[in-house]
Computed example of a mutant assay.
Amino acid sequence: MPLPENDAGVGYSFGLEVDGIQIKHITEISGLKMEQDVVELKQNDSKGNYVIKKIPGRWKAGELTVTRPLNADNSFKDWVKNAQLGKMGDVRKGGAVILYDYENAPVARYNFTNAWPKSLEMSTLKAGDTSVLTEKLVMTYEKLEAE
């Protein structure tokens, strides 16, 4: 469902699904990017003039960074551990980043294919700090498509 004319989406209303499971408590997602190579075709035209034509190439793989508060859910840690053990059949997952409107109806969906965790980083630990501890998961994917 598209947004009404002259309305815009808001950056705080989004969700993440991995293999059909809604991941809760996500505070930030970055790296949502669809990109492809550019191929330069260098040739001469019928008058002998040198011409460069740019044509679309192959899709580029990408990376998503997902941040959430540290909690009792060990799914990110388990996913990374399985990747480190080389269990790629279990590790590669499909999913989506979903954007919602003001009434929580989905307005856009970005589906990713064959994602697996590249790294998991804990926020900085600092004596006297009162900020919430977070974990930041970087996952690489093979393709991102908008729906």
Rank of each mutant, 00 (worst) to 15 (best):
T113C: 07
T65F: 02
L137A: 03
G15F: 03
G9Q: 09
S46V: 15
N44R: 14
A8V: 15
P4K: 13
E135Y: 01
R109Q: 10
R58I: 14
E28K: 15
F76E: 04
V97Y: 04
L41T: 11
R109P: 02
L120R: 04
G94F: 02
G95M: 07
A72G: 08
G57S: 09
G15M: 03
E121I: 11
I29K: 01
L125Q: 04
G128W: 08
E5R: 15
D37F: 05
L125E: 10
A115L: 04
V18E: 04
G128M: 00
I26T: 05
S30V: 13
V66G: 02
V138E: 06
E28P: 01
D101H: 02
E35S: 06
A127E: 08
I55H: 01
E63S: 08
L99C: 08
L41I: 15
V10W: 06
P117G: 07
F14R: 03
G15H: 05
K33R: 13
E147W: 11
L99F: 03
R58L: 13
G86T: 07
T27R: 06
E147I: 14
E103D: 10
L41V: 14
G15P: 02
Q43M: 12
E35I: 03
E147D: 13
L144W: 00
A146N: 15
L125A: 12
T124A: 14
T124W: 03
I55D: 08
D45S: 01
P106E: 02
V97F: 03
A146F: 13
V91D: 01
E103Q: 14
A8H: 15
S30F: 08
W79Y: 03
F76L: 10
D45C: 04
G31P: 08
T113A: 12
V107W: 00
L85G: 05
L41S: 13
V132D: 05
N104P: 03
G86M: 07
R58G: 07
V132I: 14
I26M: 03
G11R: 08
L64N: 02
A115T: 10
M139N: 05
V66E: 05
L41Q: 02
I21L: 11
V66K: 07
A96E: 05
T65I: 11
V39C: 02
E147L: 14
M1I: 15
V18T: 01
G9V: 10
L125V: 14
A127K: 09
